[in-house]
């Protein structure tokens, strides 16, 4: 149970973008120890971000958009050549 709590603390600190030993994180850890609502809040924030990330992987640049871009840049003769130069 304690390990779970500490995992959550670390996640909250990550969400805030703070260093784990920073003062805001220490205060947050103290609050979370007695706050069930905070745990639920953290879980929902984490899952919101995860859902958006998952949903987000579906978009690819359409072929016609890509062709128009290279044409506009006068690089249409290099569309195939660049593929070979990529990692």
């Amino acid at each position: 149970m304690k390990i779970e709590k500490y995992k959550i603390f670390d996640q909250v600190c990550t969400f805030l973008g703070e260093d784990l030993d920073s003062e805001p994180c220490k205060q947050l850890k103290e609050q979370l120890q007695s706050c069930k609502d905070c745990e639920v809040f953290v879980d929902k924030i984490k899952r919101t971000v995860a859902i958006y990330k998952t949903a987000d992987g579906c978009d690819e640049i359409p072929d016609d958009v890509c062709k128009k871009l290279f044409k506009k840049l006068n690089l249409d003769d290099l569309m195939d050549a660049k593929e070979n130069d990529k990692k």
Partner: peptide
């Protein structure tokens, strides 16, 4: 060619 690589 370098431009094309960056665009890609």
């Amino acid at each position: 060619n370098a431009f094309a690589i960056l665009v890609n």
